[in-house]
Design a protein around this nucleic acid. Structure first.
Length: 859
RNA sequence: GCCGCCUUAGCUCAGUGGUAGAGCGCAUCCUUGGUAAGGCUGAGGUCGACAGUUCAAUCCUGUCAGGCGGCACCA
């Protein structure tokens, strides 16, 4: 008799698993008839320490991996490192350490606690994206895309941080300033490398329909991000005021039905017409500059004031050559969407209406809501965007909005003035970063030959180690020898591309590399065909769009190259919630206080050291700035890793946030001790008989039901429900104690415990091994097959039914399972309580729901 | 502004078209040779508001309120 001591047991079992090589992935040949199962968690950035979010993420993946393994699958469950990126360079600038050393040290520091967590990972497949073996293969992939025209170079507008001298991603610009330097970010035109993701825009939307094991929310976010819209591209002929080269202005619209309500044409400040006119009209040039400044700042977007400049140019209406429309340059029109020009229909578009009111343009309604009077209907300050019938619209009169769209498109197409078109919000993916710590783009720039791919024999293009971070900017630009080279084509003097890839490129194909991480080619086609797609991918919802969209795109690109056989990399996706914690701040000076600095005393919260009062603030994501962080290592140390694993799985459903608390982890600890106590109470020698006594049928039903319920919970990602069922099982076991039990009863307990040990093993793998061993079972529980419940024990012979009278519960009856509706009705109507409640009433109807309830309608 | 999610016990949250649940907290009691304790019992809920569908709604539908997230001048 003794308490379970995780400090001794946990390291012991990890050593056993390592010694037995329990988690080695089998090759396709070795696996034989076992089906494959690929479970992957989004790989971590090696910041140097693990946090509770990691614990939750990797525990969930581990639960799935262990469960599938027990069910007889050949499981691939690998781990790697998303190791390129800015923090390494920041560390280099702030502390003078080399990004490479810093990164590999961090990886080493994080690998240990992850191993401590007892994850069933095949560590032989580990790699980091900053390994030359990995990024060299990435360079090969890029050159393949380049050859196929899926990678190209063009000028693009970027966020430029003038202090750090680098491009920033949109999410690194906060209120128009660089997140690190605080400098006002400039819009700069820079020649950049792009990947042609827009080539797959349609297929990326269509593919979402096949992803039935993805959260609807994520599919919706991707669909919105790609932003497909159907409409019409059409020309307005210029009738005066523009230079000769502008014969017509092309606009894009999703509302061709409202063409008769047009009252102006608007073009973006960056539109070629605006730019050309501005060359000899200073007032227009000034206006354009003003528009650009407004671009980034949130105040302007908030205000949303519509500004325009009348160019004096006029165009003809496509349906009526004598109808003239003025052309404005307007601040709310975007150059990189559609054609950068619109026709304004103020009555049926709010932005156009705001604009028209400001500049005194005509507002002519052409869609009449049903029931409105065509003579008096007018639009005030709110545009009408709903359904209705067209009017004031010549040949379109009387049509619905949808019919009108089709008719207008047909007419425009017949007249050769335009064409129906599909337009996307998605833009090509700019992958150039002016940084050192990333995968070098394998291109050599030659003044004679232009951009030239580095020949395959010269790959990988290695990052030079001898770089200095004493000055801002990209050290590759200042490197004396690395940058300058000779052209592979003409052997003349040439320069290397000094930009490196966006780190999202690294993470867009790593899942395919895991199939065979040491392959000579980027992807081992045979291994990838066996393992892909990933059956279950698990990660944070913050990657719902970018990472997951990029990976889907690159998978398609590689499939078109013949490097992969799947279009969708992740058949199942699960997005887990965050780990949160209460926050605390000292009442006197408002500074944030860590959870281990406080204690609860007599209903108040105080600082342990000084006793001063502490205010308990909101529950928020664990973060250093709020100091509401609990270090996983401290929990491992105090309660063991199984308690930490159990807690992050128990309280909330996995997709929701879970609130970490000291009392919660105490609860997890107690469950572990309770489970152990039941095993510990069982006699050491196996039961003398295999005949289980009849009076144990309740226990047997409970344990078989437990197997069924935990299986269901795991199949549906309801880990918290599975844990709740384990709690319930403990009450049942307590009602059937080992003390004083007959041999038959002990046999039933033995069966229950053997099921329990196996179903807890994905959640608390170390405890499960100790329990399995204590029970005297053969081998390791990780190698034991998943329990299969006996269907006969999952049903009840007698059902307990509630009886409702007029919707209110009035009685409870027992009926044999095989009783038919009439028999149940008779039992219900014969019940004393029911009779009492029916006094003075006439029974009008009786509804019998088998196994559930009887409802009597009476009046 | 558009889209989505959430609102159930003091707290954190499960759950179901048909008898309202868990953990923590609280109260009472037992145990103090399972002791960095363990256990019994119990109190506590108009399931956000209103309307509709239904024999029956916490659950389905609609409207509203409050909270959270994503996108945002995308024509």
């Amino acid at each position: 008799m003794g308490r379970y001591n995780p400090k001794e047991a946990e390291p012991h079992w990890r050593e056993r698993w390592a010694a037995e090589d329990s988690f080695r992935t089998l090759s396709a040949n070795e696996a034989g008839a076992r089906p494959k199962y690929y479970v992957l968690e989004m790989f971590p950035y090696p910041s140097g320490r693990i946090h509770m979010g990691h614990v939750r993420n990797y525990t969930m993946g581990d639960v799935v991996a262990r469960f599938k393994r027990a069910q007889g699958f050949n499981v691939l469950h690998p781990m790697g490192w998303d190791a390129f990126g800015m923090p390494a360079e920041n560390a280099a600038m702030e502390r003078g350490v080399h990004p490479k050393g810093w990164t590999y040290d961090n990886i080493a520091a994080m690998r240990e606690p992850l191993k401590t967590l007892g994850l069933s990972i095949d560590w032989s497949r580990e790699f980091a994206t900053c390994d030359p073996e990995y990024y060299g293969q990435e360079q090969k992939l890029f050159l393949e895309l380049y050859r196929r025209g899926l990678a190209y170079r063009r000028e693009g507008v970027v966020n430029w941080d003038p202090v750090d001298m680098t491009v920033l991603a949109n999410e690194q610009v906060i209120d128009g300033r660089g997140w690190r330097s605080g400098a006002v970010v400039e819009k700069r035109k820079l020649t950049q490398w792009f990947l042609r993701i827009t080539h797959y825009a349609d297929d990326l939307i269509e593919g979402l329909k096949t992803l039935d094991r993805w959260p609807d929310k994520v599919r919706l976010m991707q669909e919105n991000w790609i932003g497909r819209s159907q409409g019409l591209r059409l020309s307005f002929k210029v009738t005066g005021g523009a230079p000769a080269e502008f014969e017509a202005i092309d606009v894009y619209t999703t509302r061709p039905d409202t063409l008769y309500g047009a009252s102006f044409i608007g073009v973006a400040p960056d539109h070629p017409l605006a730019q050309t006119l501005a060359a000899d009209r200073p007032e227009l040039a000034e206006f354009i500059v003003k528009c650009r400044q407004g671009g980034a700042s949130e105040a302007d977007i908030e205000a949303g004031e519509k500004l325009g400049f009348d160019t004096g140019v006029t165009v003809a209406h496509p349906f009526d050559p004598s109808w003239r429309l003025p052309v404005y340059v307007a601040n709310f029109i975007l150059m990189d969407y559609g054609t950068g020009a619109i026709f304004g229909c103020p009555a049926h578009d709010q932005r156009d209406l705001d604009f028209a009111r400001k500049y005194g343009l005509k507002v002519m309604p052409v869609v009449l809501p049903s029931g409105a009077d065509p003579v008096s209907f007018s639009v005030g300050d709110e545009a009408y965007t709903g359904p209705g019938r067209l009017f004031n619209s010549q040949f379109l009169d009387g049509l619905t909005v949808e019919e009108g769209k089709r008719a207008a498109i047909a007419k425009v197409e017949a007249a050769g003035q335009g064409q129906g078109a599909t337009v996307y919000r998605l833009r090509d993916w700019g992958v150039s970063r002016q940084r050192y710590w990333g995968c070098p783009i394998p291109i050599i720039h030659c003044t004679a030959c232009g951009p030239t791919p580095v020949p395959e024999k010269d790959l990988p293009v290695l990052l030079p180690d001898d770089v200095a971070f004493d000055k801002p900017g990209n050290p590759l630009l200042r490197h004396p020898t690395w940058r300058f080279t000779t052209c592979p084509t003409c052997a003349g003097p040439a320069e290397r591309e000094t930009d490196t890839f966006d780190t999202f490129v690294d993470s867009s194909w790593y899942f395919a590399r895991f199939a065979n991480p040491r392959a000579e080619q980027p992807v081992d086609r045979t291994a990838a065909d066996y393992w892909l797609p990933v059956d279950q991918y698990i990660g944070g919802v913050e990657h719902a769009v970018l990472h997951l969209l990029y990976a889907r795109f690159l998978t398609r690109a590689l499939a078109d190259d013949g490097l992969l056989d799947v279009k969708e990399p992740f058949a199942g996706l699960f997005t887990q919630g965050m780990v949160t914690h209460e926050t605390y701040r000292a009442t006197c000076d408002g500074r944030w206080v860590a959870p281990d600095e406080i204690e609860q005393k007599d209903g108040t919260t105080v600082l342990i050291e000084t006793g001063e009062a502490v205010e308990v603030c909101g529950v928020e994501k664990m973060s250093k700035s709020k100091k509401n962080v609990v270090a996983p290592e401290d929990i491992f140390d105090q309660y063991g890793v199984d308690a930490a694993r159990l807690f992050v799985l128990s309280d909330s459903p996995p997709e929701r946030d879970v609130q970490w608390s000291a009392s919660g982890v105490e609860g997890a600890w107690r469950l572990i001790q309770r489970i152990w106590a039941e095993f510990d109470a069982q006699p050491v020698e196996p039961p003398a008989t295999v005949e289980m006594s009849e009076d144990c049928v309740a226990l047997r039903r409970a344990s078989h039901r437990l197997a069924q319920q935990v299986t269901d919970g795991l199949d549906n990602f309801r880990f918290n429900l599975a844990v709740a069922r384990m709690h319930e099982m403990m009450s049942v076991l307590r009602a059937h104690p080992a003390t004083g039990a007959s041999p038959g009863q002990l046999a039933a307990r033995h069966e229950a415990l053997s099921i329990l040990a196996r179903v807890i093993s994905p959640f608390m793998p170390h405890l499960a091994e100790s329990c399995w061993e204590r029970l005297g079972c053969e081998g390791l529980v990780v190698d034991a097959p998943w329990p299969k419940p006996d269907p006969a024990l999952l049903t009840q012979d007698v059902a307990v039914l509630a009886v409702q009278i007029n919707g209110k519960r009035r009685a409870e009856i027992r009926a044999p399972n095989e009783a038919d509706d009439a028999a149940i009705e008779a039992i219900a109507l014969g019940d004393d309580d029911v009779q009492r409640h029916l006094q003075g009433l006439t029974v009008r109807k009786v509804i019998v729901v088998k196994g559930r309830i009887v409802n009597i309608v009476a009046g």
